[in-house]
Write a protein that binds this DNA or RNA. Sequence first.
DNA 1: CCCTAACCTGACCGATCGGTCAGCGCCTGC
DNA 2: GCAGGCGCTGACCGATCGGTCAGGTTAGGG
Lengths: 194, 194
Amino acid sequence: MPSTPPTPVQRVQIDAGAELRLVALEMFAENGYSGTSLQQIADAAGYSKSSVLYHFRSKEALFEAALTPAVAELDLFLESIVEKLTNDEHRSGFVEEFIDLLLEHRLAAHIIINQGQTLSDIPIIDQATGLIGRIGESFMSGLPTTQQRIRLGIALAGAAYVMVALRPSAVELDDLDEVREALIDVVTELITPL
Amino acid sequence: MPSTPPTPVQRVQIDAGAELRLVALEMFAENGYSGTSLQQIADAAGYSKSSVLYHFRSKEALFEAALTPAVAELDLFLESIVEKLTNDEHRSGFVEEFIDLLLEHRLAAHIIINQGQTLSDIPIIDQATGLIGRIGESFMSGLPTTQQRIRLGIALAGAAYVMVALRPSAVELDDLDEVREALIDVVTELITPL
DNA sequence: CCCTAACCTGACCGATCGGTCAGCGCCTGC
DNA sequence: GCAGGCGCTGACCGATCGGTCAGGTTAGGG
């Protein structure tokens, strides 16, 4: 019998750091940053509080680690925006990508939207709101009337908030697809006259 | 010289309860419910923590007292809705009143929108979200397609969120009027096809 | 077989949390 | 002038907060 290969076996969930990041993301979204204690996170993940602080130097570091993937993708999205908006034909694609980005990182979006002002002194939150601001600016390069700015705000904030308001339990996969298309339609309709 | 009247004099701000309610509302909106301590509220209002707890039996009672006026007006608004919606001519008035209601109670709206899910176990929050839900239901009595529900959601949530996002410092009175009209226009445009 | 390093934990720390309580000064009606 | 209640306070309570630390356990390489 040949020697067994060097254990690439079942990697179900042995990465404690990633597991803690996920649990923390859910709880921060559900109960808020200051409303979630390290003890609660540790209990939910099946570790001790000390263990959480072994993997992450502080509560804020854990928060930052939990949000980092979403913010990184948001950053990539911003970089790709410039060419998207110069080519007029790609504008609808812009909306689609933005909605998909929000859907993929719903929990992170929930946190940034609902707690962004409160937690503005945490670096990654500051970075995220900065990115969002630059997306808005680059979109309406000639930021014309108040009415137009309000229109854009309602489109993006409304879409984000509707998505965020979806309770995780209420997410049937079919419905999610339907929601996705409806969001793309309505947002596209709102921003095309700009 | 006639006797001085029984001191109806300057009532600048001697009602400690009302003053505390106001300060608490601002701080709860700014830093969140669990992110605001009774000590911070007391300091900001110029009282001791004990004094706050003399006027309000608990932190939750103070929170409830701070939100009560807004929720009461929301309740009145819901009662007036039925006749507004049966008379087709008053539909635009509906939007106008709703926007004005949000503008008048911006801080309370901020709290209910951003912390409603988190604080769903507090009675007045439960009441407020219940009222909002009934407003939505009574508006789209025949809740038709997903697309139409999303449209309504974006209109109302977007408007509310745009308003909430206005930093208090950024509120010039002229701008506020401009924002009000823009909001009414866009929201009306969104919900008229329903 | 032992040494090391990674992982995890309970005990403990000072600070702060929401809340209680006894008592202070002051105004008012008798 | 005195009794009583209202507004307000500091001292204090147990619980919990985020965070530190010394030590226990385990797996792997020499």
